[in-house]
Write a protein that binds this DNA or RNA. Structure first.
Lengths: 219, 219
DNA sequence: GTCTATACGCCGATAGAC
DNA sequence: GTCTATCGGCGTATAGAC
């Protein structure tokens, strides 16, 4: 499913399989499916109409469920749905950055891979990106941190720091480099997600990368 | 007041003064003051806690008013308060861009003046900038357009178009130039407004301008 | 014209029946 | 375990008293 692009769901199912509860697996799988149906429906509605304009009734309808009682069984509160979405998305993102750091050596390659991921997600899972770039989560999840304070971004800033150390990136505050670099990338994607830029995301990718990298590269 | 930096209020009062309703002026001025107190309180609360987390009771308290009935007399609905805020801010912004175009000849000078304005507003009227850059108005004002579709931004894109015509700016889609240029500017300000960048806005201005202009200038 | 009291609707959450 | 019925609270809006 779109919101959890690193197969958190499959991992959960795999874990359960190892417990040899064969006869219960079908039920559990169905429960997991319902669980994810709710999350997916909520993500879409939150991204489209906003958290406060989305009622549990709306989520119930979109998820193909009969009563909101089922939602209350899976998640105690409406806020818990949003918190779970937030957690899944940020965990996946953080995990992706880890993988990217392992597979790429230079800061430029790592940043390039992150940009690739962001553009790919914008095309394949726009609601995930809306949740990341547009939604103001702190308004409905008090304990949530903004994107810029998330684990993933802390790792990205580390990448930038390393790039400055090796001389790939110009000597400057890594936070400022982050602001400039991802200002271009995220704004391009934000304008794509809102329809201001109307071509496919990939169309803007090369130029956005070039402009962003050029803003921080040591010449 | 902070939300209407082009003296819309004074203009309104001036208009009324010309009507020779001398004996009523005091009352009217007080009414206007209450009117603006409500708008200012609403702006601050919307920017801080969000529209949906702000009740009319909250606005009443923050505005130093005794009952919410007064708010209902001035604005029919809560949404109308937000709509009026939106209108004032966008009108002021659009007017500012007009003035900047009159006072400056080149695209670079005009964009530079707009950047100056944005940084100044971020320092002097942060809640106005939060409303412009962070708040998702379409969630509570259905008829509102996003910043990128506003009159002010249309004028800004015209500035960019002219810059491309004169050869100041690199030949590229003006929308893309807008995305890259204001990606850097707005992201810097957004990160300043959320506290990720902790120095005064002016501290980041020169570098942000340089990086943004460099992203679109013809070399 | 200011304020009090209240109406009304919506939604989140619960509990109990099947 | 699934659903129905309902509770309780909040927040907007109104209407009527002073």
């Amino acid at each position: 499913m779109g919101l959890d692009y690193h197969s958190h769901t499959n991992t959960a199912i795999d874990t359960l399989l190892k417990k040899n509860m064969d006869q219960e697996i079908e039920d559990i799988q169905q429960k997991l499916e319902v669980h994810d149906e709710i999350l997916l429906a909520a993500l879409q509605l939150f991204a489209k109409n906003g958290y406060f304009n989305t009622s549990l009734i709306d989520i119930k309808d979109a998820a193909g469920i009969n009563t909101i009682g089922i939602i209350h069984k899976q998640f105690k509160t409406k806020q818990a749905i949003a918190a779970k979405l937030y957690e899944n998305i940020h965990n996946s993102l953080s995990h992706s950055v880890d993988e990217i750091k392992l597979k790429n050596e230079n800061s430029s390659e790592q940043l390039r891979a992150i940009v690739d991921l962001f553009f790919k997600l914008t095309e394949d899972a726009p609601d995930v990106m809306r949740f990341l770039l547009i939604t103001k989560v702190s308004e409905f999840i008090p304990e949530a941190q903004a994107l810029c304070d998330s684990a993933a971004v802390k790792k990205i800033i580390r990448i930038i720091d390393e790039g400055i150390s090796t001389g790939e990136i110009r000597s400057m505050s890594s936070q400022l480099a982050y602001a400039h670099f991802f200002g271009i990338i995220e704004n391009t994607l934000r304008l794509k997600l809102t329809g201001f830029l109307d071509k496919k995301a990939e169309f803007y990718q090369a130029q956005a990368w070039l402009a962003a990298w050029n803003a921080i590269v040591k010449k």
